[in-house]
Design a protein around this nucleic acid. Sequence first.
DNA 1: CTTTCGGCGATGCTGCCGCGATGCGCCGCA
DNA 2: TGCGGCGCATCGCGGCAGCATCGCCGAAAG
Lengths: 221, 221
Amino acid sequence: MRILVVEDDVKIAADIAATLEAAGYVVDRETDGEEAWFRGDTEDYAAVVLDLGLPGMDGLAVLKRWRAEGRRLPVLVLSARGTWSERVEGIDAGADDYLPKPFHMDELLARLRAVIRRSAGHAAPALAAGPVRIDPRQMRVTVDGVPRALSPQEYRLLAYLMLHAGRVVPQQELAEHLQGAHDERESNAVEVLVGRVRRKLGADIIETRRGFGYLVAADAS
Amino acid sequence: MRILVVEDDVKIAADIAATLEAAGYVVDRETDGEEAWFRGDTEDYAAVVLDLGLPGMDGLAVLKRWRAEGRRLPVLVLSARGTWSERVEGIDAGADDYLPKPFHMDELLARLRAVIRRSAGHAAPALAAGPVRIDPRQMRVTVDGVPRALSPQEYRLLAYLMLHAGRVVPQQELAEHLQGAHDERESNAVEVLVGRVRRKLGADIIETRRGFGYLVAADAS
DNA sequence: CTTTCGGCGATGCTGCCGCGATGCGCCGCA
DNA sequence: TGCGGCGCATCGCGGCAGCATCGCCGAAAG
């Protein structure tokens, strides 16, 4: 398993590389954005660990360029400033997961494994839960094979819930994911959005856990 | 949610405490490093806000001592000297996040929430005692495999008792854990809650120790 | 301009949770 | 041995938080 680590801070890069190598991966290191893009484009990696603050070309730009070309290799984004808006930006740019600094190496390993496994399981990373299927590349949603039109926000809500299928997601986490700023409970935006998705896809897709959050059941298979 | 604030500057500590309490947390304050270590070691906090410059025992030493003992509670480190080397030092010592002074209270709140959520999602193993199982991801409780619906408070009560299975938990400790506002015994909230959990899960799950507290038996295996 | 989207306030409903009242069992005490 | 105090169980009720739904409107996109 080859992993590309893109990180300009030498000390952090060395730490990550040591950890990954101890876990049995083969690690290539890169510090410059442009160079990183080239290597990710021409060589074959099981995954990329990508820092956002880079010389040459910004990490987000590298990621977007890969995605624009159709490169679908798993990318785990690191960022020093773990604000939610940045996280949304990273995910929107096509990151498979996001890890805010500081992090524990154990967590990096766990998430990296998850990302690789996910990409290995289905080459086309389509999410499915019950009768609902999501094709993230086309941004299309089908229920029992019948396509349904969702607005961008509705799509993001559903995708986030299905990405975390089997887990109760607090409404505050949803609110932060959809629009980073607003923390205080001053609107019912999430509830309205859930209602709209339910009307379009069916009421039984998203389950309400009063006082906890919302839940999309994971496939029993 | 109980938070331990370790900060020797009285004014700053008061500010932080006021902010956290306004956000709904229950705050314990500590100024001495040695004392802070003891409280963090013996009591149950959702997170710790830890200043580095302390009398008695240095903040980093406190943190390292917790980690050396295997205490995994989330720690948010504050420091007046926001140098990068110090930050690395704090992270290496096992801090979950680092916040250089001066900071905005909003940012403290945001990071604290992130730290708590991360620890809740990651470090929550599935609990089991007798026929009762708790799935923290789905916030769901099953008895002999049959799911039972619990309200948030009921869930927290049961989770706390099962986390401390095999130990008699005083009801005052339960009351403080559920919501520390009410100091002295002026209500029977805990007793009512225990009764409701019993009615939903079975009377023999939670045992009463008159005059001492409540007990969930640990698995004999 | 038309249309869609997303946010907001209003309203109603369900069920959570706190509280007082009452009852029961255990203990100490005269 | 009867009595009263204490700790806990149980019940019912009311306030209100949490959520669903509706309708409106400004903004942005086509």
